[in-house]
Design a binder for these strands. Structure first.
Ligand SMILES: [Mn+2]
Ligand SMILES: [Mn+2]
Ligand SMILES: [Mn+2]
Ligand SMILES: [Mn+2]
Lengths: 224, 224
DNA sequence: AAAAATATTTAGTTATAGCTAATAATATAT
DNA sequence: ATATATTATTAGCTATAACTAAATATTTTT
């Protein structure tokens, strides 16, 4: 009674609405079309259907948002996705940039049993390999430390890389070659017009702002 | 060039044609409709499409069979399925009767990387938990010992259960409760009108023919 | 060789989820 | 306030993969 059967497409819409809402204030039809790689008329059609199912609400030109039921489903899929990513990395030797694509397909087909089995095996983890929080079995998002992109942190401070806001293979590959991975301590040496100068281990890099703003860090020196 | 992209449905058709061909001489449209839980007109339509793709050949009233390309794809899916079944059983604590359903969905979405990873982890196994042979990475079916259903073996002989020809949850559950599992040694005590009397460990059972014929065994006493 | 039974196909329908081109509604800029 | 740009929707089309009801072809039985 509680669980309507949704198509993979519908699940992806709900998940994407959730993720966009986490960032933006409101989610436009355009935003969804971009993220889901479909055209706006397709979004209109699907959002209409999801409205009818009471999974989303839509005020044209104002935004789409999830109902309580819709959010639960989104969190369920997100949990699948992030548990899978961690599982693939830890148990099947996938690299950072390979996990997203595989999880994107598997998330829709694993059973609750599969979900529970890998969660158990990994001792109920709270964050995936990108630093994204994994909703708990009862669909609560765990607290994360206070984070901000490198570009917003103070020069001179020591930071811990805690989350990477991209699933792009090339970006992730680049970051891991520069050792800019989750948990790494870095120091901002300076903010220049072309990018941010960082000290990573013994090395120094100038990374472009476009990359820097994707890397979210905790400030180890901040007192609060 | 070598790999057309097929729908899940199409993959299931190819797999089912392969499995039926292993048993029957020819595979009718009806057979396929039954196995795939669709109606005959749906089969006509899909077989026509698969013919056009050169994956199957069809002589009406005579049967459907796979082309070389079609067979390769069928074996690829079968490999996914059987590797997954074994993986679920060995690494995620699934029981005998739970693995099939999950593998049925996962088989279509795992990548070649995933396939390779679990094959490696399990040391390139040749048989799944039902005793079904797992096609190798280059799609060759491994040799199995000479097997026949319990119903065709000689009274008094000691047998080793080597393959179970069912994916039905209830049947598998029943069999495992009776300890009639892969690798178990049994002895046929007699063939009666209602069924076959077996000695399993220290116990004796009379199991109906309908069940007995699903359990395929190797004759440990046969000299050949 | 007909008749009956079985197997297969055709014709026409449905549902899902996309698309383009055109239209309408709203927001923004002048 | 009006014009322009942006955003969203409608209308109509496509493809996939089912379905039912009816027609046709083949095999089997009498
Ligand atoms: Mn997905
Ligand atoms: Mn992630
Ligand atoms: Mn399947
Ligand atoms: Mn099996």
């Amino acid at each position: 009674m509680e669980k309507p059967i949704l198509s993979e497409s519908q699940e992806d819409y709900l998940k994407e609405i959730f993720k966009l809402r986490e960032l933006n204030l409101n989610v436009s039809m355009q935003d969804l079309a971009n993220k889901l790689n479909v055209k706006p008329p397709s979004v209109t059609g699907m959002v209409k259907k999801l409205c009818a199912m009471n999974l989303v609400e839509h005020e044209p030109y104002k935004g789409v948002q999830l109902t309580e039921t819709g959010e639960k489903i989104a969190l369920e899929i997100l949990r699948h996705h992030r548990l899978l990513e961690l599982y693939l990395a830890k148990h099947l030797n996938y690299s950072w940039d390979e996990i997203h694509e595989e999880a994107e397909r598997l998330e829709h087909v694993i059973s609750e049993k599969f979900e529970a089995a890998i969660a158990e095996l990994m001792d109920h983890p709270t964050h995936d390999p990108h630093g994204d929080p994994i909703p708990s079995a009862d669909l609560v998002i765990p607290d994360s430390p206070e984070l901000a992109p490198i570009t917003l942190h103070k020069t001179g401070h020591q930071l811990t890389i805690s989350r990477v806001m991209s699933q792009d293979k090339d970006i992730l590959n680049l970051l891991s070659r520069l050792e800019l991975i989750i948990g790494r301590k870095i120091t901002i040496k300076g903010n220049e017009s072309t990018g941010v100068r960082l000290k990573v281990n013994e090395n120094q890099y100038l990374i472009p702002h476009s990359i820097a703003k994707l890397v979210w860090c905790h400030d180890d020196e901040k007192a609060d």
